[in-house]
């Protein structure tokens, strides 16, 4: 039982990372129906910005987090303006392929610029503390990453449900032409969407840096894909769905490794994706409106 609870804690901290990435995925999809495959790589850029601001500028972890989020917000907007905006009225597949192109560009440009050598996140930026609670081991990193994911999700939910910008986002998502007619600036709304989504990715990137110590230019690929599965699992376009999907994914993987074998962990993760698409294509939280995916 104790081992099961320990595995649950392992799963929750892994899941929190997936959830953070999945939030950005699902948000961009929710507004402009684009699966932004570059999302995982924006996360990687965020991790590098965080790394350099700690290692070179000597800032503390919170400043690094905010700096990474701001830079990636700008990067996200830039990518949208250059790569996606000209294709807004083209077929959806064109935008999707462009997203893959952007993803490869970010990966290999970073590889070229910063070499494939892995970088080590300075341990001193976030020293580890362990807590023993009735035989269970919890670290401050586990708690931080979990709390950060929950706070960001609540903030996001608030922005979308309670603010004017959020209202504009929902309007653009529902019917772009009608939104224009109502005087909503679609360009601006989409830019804000990308800014928020990318800054969430950056937060996830810095968290991965803190949690796993090492970062490299291709670190975004696998977590990006897993987070995509998490977003689909929860119902893509639905914010609480991404959160729940992320945690479920983390726990699932941990349990497969813990009680089965690491070797079929990824097979199970992607098997789940196929299963959902077959049984409930709209995801756990999705409503059958017939308009998604």
């Amino acid at each position: 039982m104790l081992e099961f609870l320990q595995q649950l804690i392992n799963g929750l901290s892994l899941g929190a990372i997936y959830a953070l990435i999945a939030l950005g995925y699902t948000m961009v999809y929710g507004i402009i129906m684009l699966i932004n495959f570059a999302h995982g790589d924006i996360m990687m850029v965020g991790a590098y910005v965080g790394f350099f601001s700690i290692a070179v500028l000597g800032s503390n972890i919170f400043a690094a987090l905010i700096f990474a989020m701001l830079s990636c917000a700008a990067l996200g907007v830039l990518i949208e303006k250059i790569a996606y905006k000209p294709l807004r009225n083209s077929s959806r597949i064109a935008a999707l392929i462009t997203a893959i192109g952007v993803s490869l560009f970010l990966e290999y440009f970073t590889l070229f610029l910063l070499t494939p050598q892995q970088r080590v996140f300075p341990e001193a930026a976030f020293p580890l503390h362990k807590y023993q609670i009735g035989g269970l081991l919890v670290s401050n990193k586990d708690i931080f990453i979990f709390v950060l994911a929950v706070i960001l999700m609540i903030a996001l939910q608030y922005i979308i449900k309670r603010t004017r910008t959020g209202k504009a986002m929902r309007a653009v998502s529902l019917d772009r032409e009608a939104a224009i007619l109502m005087g909503i600036s679609v360009d601006r709304t989409i830019s804000i969407t990308f800014a928020i989504g990318s800054s969430l990715a950056a937060a996830a990137g810095v968290m991965i840096g803190i949690y796993y110590n090492t970062i490299n230019p291709l670190m975004g690929i696998i977590p990006g894909l897993k987070a995509f599965v998490a977003a689909v699992l929860g119902g893509i376009g639905i914010i609480p769905g991404a959160m729940v999907g992320g945690f479920l994914m983390g726990i699932l993987e941990t349990m497969v490794s813990g009680y089965g074998s690491t070797l079929y962990r990824d097979a199970v993760a992607f098997g789940v994706l196929i299963l959902i698409l077959l049984v409930k294509p709209t995801g756990l939280f999705g409503k059958d409106t017939g308009e998604k995916v």
Partner: peptide, 20 residues
């Protein structure tokens, strides 16, 4: 006997299992 795949970053689940 347990295994991992090159590129893995999270070993906690398997380590927790081995610990027992």
């Amino acid at each position: 006997k347990e295994g991992y795949v090159n590129g893995d970053k999270d070993f906690k689940a398997t380590l927790t299992k081995l610990r027992s």
